[in-house]
Computed example of a mutant assay.
Amino acid sequence: MAVLRGWRFVAFVSCIVGAVGLTLYPVVVDPMLNTEKYKSLQEYSKIKRDELQHIKVK
Rank of each mutant, 00 (worst) to 15 (best):
I55F: 06
K46F: 03
V13E: 00
T23I: 05
E36A: 13
I55D: 07
V13K: 11
G6I: 01
G6K: 02
S45T: 10
G18H: 04
L22G: 06
A11M: 07
E51P: 11
R5S: 09
P31D: 03
L4S: 13
K48C: 05
A2I: 02
S40C: 02
E36C: 04
G21A: 06
R49L: 11
G18I: 03
A11K: 09
G21R: 02
F12V: 05
L41H: 06
V17S: 15
E43G: 06
T23P: 14
V29G: 04
R49N: 11
W7L: 08
V3N: 02
A19W: 03
S14C: 12
D50G: 11
D30Y: 08
K56H: 14
V17R: 13
K37E: 05
G21H: 10
I55R: 10
V57Y: 14
C15T: 00
L33F: 05
A11F: 11
N34L: 07
K39G: 12
K46P: 02
G21Q: 01
K58T: 11
V10M: 04
K58H: 14
V10P: 08
K46A: 15
V20E: 06
L41E: 15
V20F: 10
G21C: 14
V20T: 05
D50K: 13
S14I: 01
T35S: 14
C15F: 01
G18F: 10
F9H: 10
S14K: 05
C15M: 01
V3H: 04
G18Q: 00
F12C: 12
D50R: 11
G21L: 12
E51G: 10
L4P: 00
V3T: 08
K39Q: 07
M1F: 01
K39T: 04
L22Q: 05
M1K: 02
D50C: 10
V27S: 06
L24N: 08
Y44S: 05
E43L: 00
V17D: 13
K48T: 11
E43V: 09
L24M: 12
V17T: 07
R49F: 10
Y25C: 13
A11H: 00
K48F: 00
V3W: 07
P31N: 04
K58M: 14
V10D: 02
L4W: 02
N34H: 09
V10T: 03
H54S: 14
V29L: 14
I47H: 07
F12S: 00
D30E: 13
K56P: 07
S14W: 08
R8A: 12
K58R: 06
A2D: 08
V17N: 14
L22A: 03
R8H: 11
L24P: 02
K46W: 10
L41Y: 09
L4G: 04
K48S: 01
L33A: 10
L52G: 11
R49H: 12
V27N: 04
G21I: 09
M1N: 00
S45L: 13
Q42M: 05
G21P: 08
P26F: 01
